[in-house]
Computed example of a mutant assay.
Amino acid sequence: MGDTIGQRELRNDSGAIMRRVEQGESFVVTRNGRPVADLVPHARPHDEPRRTLGELQHLFRELPPVDAARWRAERTEADELLGDDDPIT
């Protein structure tokens, strides 16, 4: 993480700090000397490279096969322990 700034500094210099964040800097915000938050640039979905359909299909083909019987058994076990996750029933 980047520089450490106090809550008061963030409040008093928010404009300058936000401009620095826009330029890619990160901060750990503290209150009474204790870290309470990370101030980081927002990751926008369009910043990530888009993959083609062919690339995605290739990635999915490389995944291990799903054992449907094992999945159902694990789901049933979880439902018995935690309850059904269907909010309608």
Rank of each mutant, 00 (worst) to 15 (best):
R44A: 00
L56Y: 07
D86K: 04
D67W: 05
V40Q: 09
L39D: 02
V21T: 09
F60H: 03
R61F: 01
N12G: 06
I5P: 00
R34Q: 14
A43D: 13
Q57K: 08
R31E: 08
G33R: 12
D67V: 01
S14G: 03
L53T: 10
D3A: 09
H42V: 04
D38G: 14
V29F: 00
R51C: 01
G15V: 13
E80G: 09
H46S: 09
S26R: 15
E55I: 01
L82Q: 05
V66W: 04
R50K: 09
S14K: 11
A16M: 10
R8G: 01
V36H: 02
R51I: 04
D84Q: 13
A73R: 15
F60M: 05
E74Y: 07
F60Y: 08
E9R: 13
A69K: 12
H58D: 14
V66H: 02
G2V: 12
P41G: 01
L53Q: 12
I17P: 00
R72Y: 10
L82F: 15
D38H: 14
A37H: 05
D67K: 05
A78N: 12
T30Q: 02
V29E: 00
I88V: 12
A37I: 10
H42C: 04
R50S: 10
E22K: 11
Q23W: 06
E77V: 08
A16F: 10
P45I: 08
F60C: 03
T89K: 12
W71I: 08
E22C: 05
P87S: 12
A69V: 09
R51F: 03
P45A: 04
R11T: 10
T30W: 02
G6T: 10
R20I: 06
V28N: 01
T52P: 03
E22S: 07
M18L: 15
R20K: 13
M18N: 05
R75S: 12
V28D: 01
V28C: 02
F27W: 06
R11K: 13
I5C: 00
E74R: 14
P65F: 07
G2E: 14
D85V: 02
T52S: 15
I5L: 04
S26I: 07
R44K: 14
L53S: 09
E55D: 08
L56I: 11
L81R: 13
E62Y: 02
P45L: 06
H42A: 03
L81A: 04
T52Y: 02
V28K: 02
M1I: 13
V40F: 02
P87H: 15
G15C: 05
S26P: 08
N12Y: 06
G33M: 13
I88T: 13
D85Y: 12
A68G: 03
D47A: 10
L56T: 09
P41C: 04
E62Q: 15
A43E: 15
P64S: 13
Q7M: 11
L56G: 03
Q57W: 04
V40D: 06
R19V: 06
G2K: 14
G54N: 08
D67P: 01
V21S: 05
R34K: 14
P87A: 11
Q23E: 08
D38F: 12
E62V: 00
P41I: 02
A43F: 11
W71P: 00
L39P: 05
D38R: 14
V21H: 10
V28M: 08
L56H: 05
A69F: 04
R11W: 04
A73E: 15
F60V: 11
L81V: 04
D79N: 12
E22A: 12
T52E: 03
R34T: 06
